[in-house]
Amino acid sequence: MRVLILDDDEELGELMQPQLAKYGMELSLSFTPTQAFEMLDAEHFDCLLLDMMLPELDGMAVCRAIRSSGKSYAEIPIVALTARAELTDRIVALEGGFDDFVAKPMEMRELVARIGAVVRRKRDDQVPVPAEPQPEPHSGLHLSPAHMSAVYGPYAVNLTELELRVLTALREADGAILSRGDILASIGYTDQSDPAMIDTIIYRVRQKFRDQGLNTDFIKTLRGQGYCIRAEQVS
């Protein structure tokens, strides 16, 4: 597996190279966004490790530039390397186009696991799935991946990718209760991911519908158990 790191700390990359090599990963080093883009244009990489705090251009801007580039590497799995591990920072990174994040200082086995997970998830997403007729959802919730939106009764909202994934997992459970760990697994994250991320995403979805005038919480919270979607009268 070929991995590219963009981090202005030259010693960090040099220290990581032999450690990742033990896990069959070939790490190439870049120290500026300009250098990283030149390498991405010239070579194929399976994953990008991207420092969030860069002097030339911050990590969020680099990630946005990659995702909007229209080039072959636009969908490369990107793992954020950050010294800021607050939940809000992680959610912003994930919704901004990153696939995962690792807090500095890094534990190498965790980094290897996260690289492997995002690469597998990206490959799975690229496998064509035969289209099947979708039954009318019992929950009354309609999701449109093509338009990144959700409709419940007369209320419609736009969604981020993570919000769409979480709602899809809950709707497909058909009223069954999913724990936060169940939801994390269903959207492709490991049990090492922070389960509070699910609480934040669900809060944001509820707030979007409330802003549209929906007075009903169709996403039910079961204390100590998790979440589910259950149909009730829309108001």
Rank of each mutant, 00 (worst) to 15 (best):
Ala93Asn: 08
Leu94Pro: 11
Leu94Ser: 05
Leu94Gln: 13
Glu95Cys: 10
Gly96His: 00
Gly97His: 07
Gly97Asn: 09
Asp99Gly: 10
Phe101Asp: 13
Val102His: 07
Ala103Glu: 07
Lys104Val: 08
Lys104Gly: 05
Met106Pro: 10
Arg109Glu: 08
Glu110Thr: 13
Glu110Val: 15
Leu111Asn: 07
Leu111Ile: 05
Leu111Lys: 06
Ala113Asp: 15
Arg114Pro: 12
Ile115Gly: 09
Gly116Tyr: 10
Ala117Pro: 02
Ala117Met: 10
Arg120Asp: 13
Arg120Val: 14
Arg120Ala: 14
Arg120Leu: 14
Lys122Arg: 10
Asp124Asn: 06
Asp125Glu: 15
Asp125Ile: 01
Gln126Lys: 14
Val127Asn: 05
Val129Asn: 15
Pro130Val: 05
Ala131Leu: 12
Ala131Ile: 14
Ala131Cys: 11
Glu132Arg: 15
Gln134Leu: 06
Pro135Val: 13
Glu136Gln: 11
Glu136Tyr: 13
Glu136Cys: 09
Pro137Ile: 02
Pro137Asn: 13
His138Asp: 12
His138Thr: 05
Ser139Thr: 14
Leu141Phe: 06
Leu141Glu: 03
His142Ser: 13
Leu143Ala: 01
Ser144Glu: 01
Ser144Cys: 05
Pro145Ile: 05
Ala146Trp: 08
Met148Ser: 11
Met148Phe: 15
Val151His: 09
Val151Lys: 15
Tyr152Gln: 10
Gly153Gln: 10
Gly153Ala: 05
Tyr155Gly: 10
Ala156Phe: 09
Asn158Ala: 13
Asn158Ile: 15
Leu159Ala: 03
Thr160Ser: 15
Glu161Phe: 13
Glu161Trp: 09
Leu162Ala: 11
Glu163Met: 07
Leu164Asp: 00
Arg165Ala: 12
Arg165Ile: 00
Leu167His: 02
Thr168Cys: 03
Ala169Thr: 01
Ala169Ile: 02
Leu170Asn: 02
Arg171Met: 14
Arg171Val: 14
Arg171Leu: 00
Arg171Thr: 11
Glu172Ala: 14
Ala173Val: 01
Gly175His: 04
Ile177Trp: 07
Leu178Glu: 07
Arg180Cys: 04
Ile183Leu: 03
Ile183Phe: 00
Leu184Asn: 02
Leu184Cys: 06
Leu184Glu: 01
Ser186Cys: 08
Ile187His: 01
Gly188Thr: 09
Tyr189Leu: 04
Asp191Gln: 11
Gln192Lys: 15
Asp194Thr: 08
Ala196Gln: 15
Met197Gln: 12
Ile198Tyr: 01
Thr200Asn: 08
Thr200His: 12
Thr200Pro: 04
Ile201Glu: 00
Ile201Val: 15
Ile201Lys: 11
Ile201Asn: 02
Ile202His: 13
Tyr203Trp: 07
Tyr203Cys: 11
Tyr203His: 13
Tyr203Pro: 02
Arg204Gly: 02
Arg204Asp: 08
Val205Leu: 02
Arg206Tyr: 07
Phe209Trp: 04
Asp211Ala: 09
Asp211Tyr: 07
Gln212Asp: 11
Gln212Cys: 06
Gly213Phe: 06
Leu214Gly: 03
Asn215Val: 11
Asn215Gln: 14
Ile219Phe: 03
Ile219Asn: 01
Lys220Tyr: 04
Leu222Asp: 12
Gln225Gly: 03
Gln225Trp: 13
Gly226Pro: 03
Tyr227Pro: 14
Cys228Val: 00
Cys228Asn: 06
Cys228Met: 07
Ile229Arg: 08
Ile229Asn: 03
Ile229Lys: 06
